[in-house]
């Protein structure tokens, strides 16, 4: 699906495949942004690097998808699409899927951690799960 990635997009997947979550970082204004782009959307500088985040996030919004809108997406139905905000990259929100998180726990601000079980797939994906487990 993503065999023609824009050049500024490839670094994210390279880091992710190596088990690390890195986001674009502007050296000029010292802020993260998303998505990757040639100029920083905050200060328009073009000296953009990649900086690791710890992978702790909070749930901003979510939806349980129960319809196959696009046949190119072949995952099992239903699945949860989540929009998450990072504790150490304020203002950046990432689209991801939730795993191992009971449906009744879903609420805005739910603490989450990154899960790398799908980082070896093509394309690599970073998933998230509830920071607490059922037994805690």
């Amino acid at each position: 699906m993503s065999d023609a990635l824009a050049p500024e997009f490839t670094a994210f997947n390279r880091w992710l495949a190596a088990g690390e979550l890195r986001l674009p970082w502007c050296d000029a204004c010292r802020r993260h942004h998303w998505y990757p782009m040639p100029r920083c959307p905050h200060c328009r500088a073009s000296d953009i690097g990649w900086r690791a985040v710890a992978g702790r996030a909070r749930l901003y919004s979510w939806t349980e998808v129960s319809h196959r809108f696009d046949p190119r997406y072949q995952g099992p139905l239903p699945y949860i699409v989540a929009l998450v905000e990072f504790d150490d990259a304020p203002g950046v929100r990432l689209v991801t899927n939730l795993v191992d998180t009971p449906r009744e726990w879903l609420a805005v601000h739910l603490p989450l951690v990154a899960d790398f079980r799908a980082a070896g797939e093509t394309p690599p994906r970073v998933l998230f799960r509830a920071a607490l487990t059922r037994s805690e």
């Binding site: 699906m1 993503s2 990635l5 696009d70 899927n97």
Partner: peptide, 8 residues
């Protein structure tokens, strides 16, 4: 295409 569609 790169960062959303792979997540459905």
């Amino acid at each position: 295409m790169a960062f959303e569609k792979p997540y459905g």
